[in-house]
Design a protein around this nucleic acid. Sequence first.
DNA 1: ACGTAAATTGTAAACGATTACATTATCATC
DNA 2: GATGATAATGTAATCGTTTACAATTTACGT
Lengths: 332, 332
Amino acid sequence: MRVTIKRIAELSGVSVTTVSKILNGKDHDLNPKTIEKVKQIIKQENYKPSLLAQSMRYRQMKLIALMLPDIRNPFFAEVIRGAEDCANKYNYSLVLCNSDNELEKEIDYITSLQARHIDGMLLSGVQIENRLMENQLKINVPISFIKSQNNIKDRDYADIIGAYESTNYLIKHHHENILCIVGPEVFAHTQRYLQGYTNALNEHEIELNPKNILHISSYTAESAYNESLNLLKFTKASAVCCSNDLIAYGVLKALRELDIKVPEQMSVIGYDDIEFNIYLETPLTSFSPNRYAMGWDSTINLIEKIESKNLNDFTNGINTRLMIRSTTGDKK
Amino acid sequence: MRVTIKRIAELSGVSVTTVSKILNGKDHDLNPKTIEKVKQIIKQENYKPSLLAQSMRYRQMKLIALMLPDIRNPFFAEVIRGAEDCANKYNYSLVLCNSDNELEKEIDYITSLQARHIDGMLLSGVQIENRLMENQLKINVPISFIKSQNNIKDRDYADIIGAYESTNYLIKHHHENILCIVGPEVFAHTQRYLQGYTNALNEHEIELNPKNILHISSYTAESAYNESLNLLKFTKASAVCCSNDLIAYGVLKALRELDIKVPEQMSVIGYDDIEFNIYLETPLTSFSPNRYAMGWDSTINLIEKIESKNLNDFTNGINTRLMIRSTTGDKK
DNA sequence: ACGTAAATTGTAAACGATTACATTATCATC
DNA sequence: GATGATAATGTAATCGTTTACAATTTACGT
């Protein structure tokens, strides 16, 4: 049986009010002797107030839900760490929700999470993201989208910048015919990546060739491998921008199979810069959005909304940049 | 303001009892008309009972804590998916706890999680694992260790089998001088891996050379790289067993740097078989413990303990096996 | 010895659900 | 129309906290 405040009160021979006051430091009007005695018993019984009962009173659970497509995408690991460390610092716990990119699952989660009295919600790469932003769907708790910077303008999304800088880099290295392989259109990330790609082309007055854009059916290496083989076989392009590293992995595998040399015949750029890039045959050039910071900052942002106050605890160095490794080179 | 059972009662002009009975299907003694009316209002108001209040009464939160060293280790992603899918099926949510291999953090978590009224705890690769198994530490909720099979005998741990089969495979391919690079001793996994390695050597009457065993300071590629360089430079061994894939990655990097060819001069075997293995330069031979099943089965095991009943919902195909790829070969 | 202010401590309601038990309504029967 | 059986609904306690407010005790001046 759990030790309750009532039991502590009994053992100390005082009322629960007194114990509660001591627990919450509101003991200015209490006899120091009483305080001493009660504290002693609390320690002795190793008593910890029930977060459940507290939540019941305060109507907040100190619980944040983190919804993402699939934790197996290594992109998320680092983001989650950032989010968890931050949540923890402010006494929140993180509940994990894998949506598998299924809209139905996402909506199911939202309903059941609200019954759970979560205090807020972190969203990354989920389909409802778009709907929520357009206010087509209502959630009665604060939400925060995981992106590389908070309080930023549309133009400053890391996805846009990343795609822009990647494409730009390739153009600077004399590539003109550049493929862009991205995930399904439903994702905000996909759309922003494409936008960055388009921006760069426009800036250099290169005409956008719709055939150079390939939407694959999911953000996995397998899809990318299967679905890009055909395009890569016949393309005249000399470079590819991939909207995440997993896609780049699939593409690299396909290129290997087609015996197209990287970077000699084809330059490849990923996005996310997951740890594994450095262990690859030819380490992958990739845009690094500082995922830990993304997780942390979005969480701070959320907690600020939940508690309606300024925490001023954002990471300072955002540090997004194109990590140039070995899959990219000058066009011959 | 949240819709409560009280509000539903008011709107329907009945008492909360009546509503509660209807919600819980205990409406056999209620007037069908009343039931209809109340159900209608529940739907209209989109009312969901508060899990919090229910937990308060039933004293269970439908919450399971999952503690592991670091989610960034890709080994865990698949395990977590298995655990989450299973938890979800039985209406539990998963709370994530990264312990960073710090005993202090682990113990902190345990205390704070109990205040949170978690119903049970899943543990994987944490230091307290040993202490708990030896009953040096008490937790007042059911716990379950994530391992490859439940209800199994000591000899059947996947770690032991994996190390045994890996070593065995190397011996069969004429290697006799085999290194074993493992993580810190505090981990149960480390100990079991070493045991499997030793078992295999014993079986073939190869004497164990203590110098062939290297404990590195953490389960990361970086540690492995830094701390194995020296050993690899001077060793006469022709093969290495690594107690996880990250270690193998570090070792591969070191070997590349030392210009030791894999598998011609050195065979390398990992453990975990993380997805990335197939994208490596020379895809890594690795023992695959079916991590999804590990997550799922351990969770079933836990929920069975929590609810004291048999769910009979274990995955059937455990399917652990040595995935032979390109980092291993015959000794010349 | 008594009133009063100050110092202590306690009572009870609230948070949102569930449920044993009590109460009220309905109706047939004598 | 009183009685009792049955059907339908409601009361109040409980889970573990917090807190506005009430109550009690103590100290002190007259």
